[in-house]
Simulated scan of single mutants.
Amino acid sequence: MKIIIQEFIAKFYQVIILILLAIILVLSIFGGVQTWRASSLKTDYQLLNAKYKTEVAEAKALTEQAKAEARTKEKEWSDKLLEVEKAHNAKMQEIIIDVNNAKSAVDGMSKQLDTATKRMSTASKETIIEYANTNSDVLKECIGQYQYVAEQADKHAADAKRLSDAWPK
């Protein structure tokens, strides 16, 4: 019986050793797989991190390029606006000079009309008729000029509205 027990104990130890070897083998395989997965994840992380840094650098470069283009466009618009303002101011000076000249001419004509009106009481019938005809011709010319100026003002207003509506918002 002693032999049976010794054989049983020997077989028991063999089975225990085999089980321990199998556990060590499984743990070694599991450890190797985990090491491989960790290495793979680390490589993937490094690739994604490098890609992220590249994309961030590209985005910064594009942002700087857009800022530079915006500054250039703003400078162009500013220069154009300054040029237009100078031209507008020069035109306004011309208009002021023209208005002053027109006022002088109107003042001169007003004085002539006052003088003519004062002389009406002593004028002959033919002179009065000629004066009335001349006044009629002057009024017709004034009406024609008034219509022309009104037409030009309406065209200008339509052009200004078209430009305003077409201007980028």
Results as ranks from 00 to 15, higher is better:
M1Q: 15
K2T: 10
I3T: 15
I5P: 02
F8T: 12
Y13A: 13
V15Q: 15
I17W: 10
L18I: 15
L20A: 14
L21V: 11
L25A: 14
L27T: 12
G32I: 04
S39D: 08
S39F: 06
Q46V: 06
L48P: 02
L48H: 12
N49Y: 04
K53G: 02
T54G: 09
K60S: 10
L62I: 12
T63C: 00
A66F: 04
K67S: 06
A68E: 06
E69I: 03
K73D: 01
W77L: 10
W77V: 06
D79W: 02
L82P: 02
E83P: 02
E83H: 00
K86Y: 03
A87Q: 11
H88K: 15
Q93L: 09
I95E: 13
I95L: 14
I95V: 11
N100T: 07
N101D: 14
K103A: 09
A105K: 06
S110H: 06
L113N: 00
L113C: 02
A116E: 02
S124E: 03
T127P: 01
A132L: 10
T134H: 07
S136Q: 11
C142G: 07
Y146A: 05
V149H: 00
E151T: 05
A153M: 14
A153K: 12
K155I: 02
H156F: 11
A158L: 11
D159N: 15
K161D: 05
D165G: 03
A166D: 10
A166S: 09
W167K: 08
P168K: 02
